[in-house]
């Protein structure tokens, strides 16, 4: 059985990589991919903490409901973000997020 510390460590590595993607890229699509990676690594970290909690004898069924909420929020964020991105590209003819300097136009 894989130790939960390795699961949490792997989630940490994936989170750092996804966060670096968000911080270094200026393309809207790359940003959305990075945010998706952040949510996915968070879900994996939650699973690692669930295993840690289960190793201590606690009930873990509720944590799965919380992980389900994270996954659904990630899907909602991606769908809405891409819709905003398509509207942004139609107006500005660019995918560079530095062109989005105002919150409303």
């Amino acid at each position: 059985m894989v130790p939960y510390t390795q699961v949490i460590g792997l989630a940490l590595i994936l989170f750092v990589l996804a966060l670096a993607l968000v911080l270094t890229r200026r393309s809207l699509l790359a940003l959305l991919a990075g945010v998706q990676g952040v949510f996915t690594s968070l879900c994996l970290a939650l699973l690692g903490f669930v295993r840690m909690h289960a190793a201590g004898g606690g009930a873990v069924s509720e944590a799965y409901g919380f992980a389900l909420i994270i996954l659904v929020v990630a899907a909602a964020e991606l769908a809405l973000g891409l819709s905003i991105g398509v509207a942004f590209v139609r107006r500005r003819r660019s995918v560079n997020v530095e062109n989005a300097s105002v919150l409303r136009w």
Partner: peptide
């Protein structure tokens, strides 16, 4: 970091974790 996590004593398992099946998750 990965080598430290995999190879070090940090990776010791405290106990066998029993994860719930789909039925328990559905009831929850």
């Amino acid at each position: 970091i990965l080598a430290w996590i995999v190879g070090g004593s940090f990776g010791e398992l405290a106990g066998e974790a029993e994860l719930p099946g789909s039925q328990a998750v559905a009831i929850s």
